[in-house]
Design a protein around this nucleic acid. Sequence first.
DNA 1: AGCTGATATCAGCACAGCCTGATAAGATCA
DNA 2: TGATCTTATCAGGCTGTGCTGATATCAGCT
Lengths: 91, 91
Amino acid sequence: MLADPLRARIIELLAEGPACVCHLVDDTGAKQPNVSNHLRALREAGLVATEPHGRFTYYRLLPDAIEAVAGQLAQLAERARTNAETRRECP
Amino acid sequence: MLADPLRARIIELLAEGPACVCHLVDDTGAKQPNVSNHLRALREAGLVATEPHGRFTYYRLLPDAIEAVAGQLAQLAERARTNAETRRECP
DNA sequence: AGCTGATATCAGCACAGCCTGATAAGATCA
DNA sequence: TGATCTTATCAGGCTGTGCTGATATCAGCT
């Protein structure tokens, strides 16, 4: 989900503060439906939230969701470190 | 890279300690060439390392690489939190 | 050397997902 | 209400990539 280049760029931009779709379209250079589709994917994944504001739609990043992923990865690295010596032998 | 289901499973298994390909094939239920291909992708991405051991090949997770990704995400969440109120207005 | 078992590589197929153009829905203003 | 602007949705084409079967490579054993 975070791996797609355009989605990564969108997230990067949203980390600088909430922005509306037209900003994201301008800054990424991508077509509007494309950006909108990615925003929907991010919304359904719970990574961003919408704030309708007049006829504009502002999107903001949800830090908790990002931090949760970061936490899981950190935990994974921790586990790998503690179990670094428990190699399972092949019969 | 970490998003693919089988790759995520492999990484999960490697977090419990180094294992050889046959273990990963058994535990995931996937075909051997498939597992081998994913391991190559992970190796080229710098996420795992190989330890040839006789005719077996042990793979171990590189915690530093995982932790680096976790750090970047945490930093992203941090930025999003500090900039949560600096909404860019639409002209 | 010959055999067996573990791993890596390759070619081909199939499917998911991204991109685009057209269009619809909703809001604001004259 | 009509016009315009922003955003969302849809259908179609296309590329990337994961999966599989076959095969090659390599180590260890008899």
